[in-house]
Design a protein around this nucleic acid. Sequence first.
DNA 1: CAAGTTGTTTGCCTTTGAATAGAACAATAG
DNA 2: CTATTGTTCTATTCAAAGGCAAACAACTTG
Lengths: 131, 131
Amino acid sequence: MLIRLDPTRATPLFEQLAAAVRAAIIDGRVIGGERLPSARDLAESLGVNMHTVLRAYRVLRDEQLIELHRGRGAVVAVRIGGHAALAGAIHDLVDEAKQHDLPEGALLALISQAYRGAPAPPRVLRTPTTR
Amino acid sequence: MLIRLDPTRATPLFEQLAAAVRAAIIDGRVIGGERLPSARDLAESLGVNMHTVLRAYRVLRDEQLIELHRGRGAVVAVRIGGHAALAGAIHDLVDEAKQHDLPEGALLALISQAYRGAPAPPRVLRTPTTR
DNA sequence: CAAGTTGTTTGCCTTTGAATAGAACAATAG
DNA sequence: CTATTGTTCTATTCAAAGGCAAACAACTTG
């Protein structure tokens, strides 16, 4: 998994790192159960502080994409999968937004609002015995 | 157009304000050509500084949602319309994300990445020895 | 058990950003 | 001309965020 951080960008290092790993997980480039490099190792190889890496890991843990354990390291959660539809939906939406010349910030703001304002759990019409 | 700002929220005031007006425009609650209150007036009625309002207006101007002219004030752009599809796409995506228990931050990060220029759906290829 | 590995916690410091304020200015409307 | 309204400039205050460092606690391994 190739990761390249740009300190000159406005987005924080830990966020760039989290985004890179997150994308890899969502896309399936890293499989569930796979172990990520230790924070210290990754930090050294990236030329950043260990805490910066750890913070990125913590972000992903809060998103339940990975698990963290002392002495064991960071492991990709196994429950991940089937995000293909989501990836597709994202792509479509971005296309639509670009067609309307809607800047990135505006799109993000709208989504953020929709996320908050949206009603209760959209009753799934799927099999009720999921999971 | 009712606007309510919450100073305790983490999101900046100018951003809250921009989001409120933006949503109103996208939803069609304010029509193209309609004039928004002057920065000074709106600032006073909201209990914030004029510069804060102007900053929000500037954000919307950069998104080409409104036009700003000295002596004339802020006017909603006329080229607005047909955002219904976009609003729908946003709603769908948010639903999908929530079904996957994907937190807001993660969704925003993914979209931000996709917007910049997402590398095409990378064929899953299982690196045998990812270091 | 002992030693090494790895995430966790706490604290500190620097920088950035938001919000405010005041003032002078320039284009527009009436 | 006069009033309105956005623009620009400078400045200050305050809180949050980012990044870093050292000591610590849980886990793994031999």
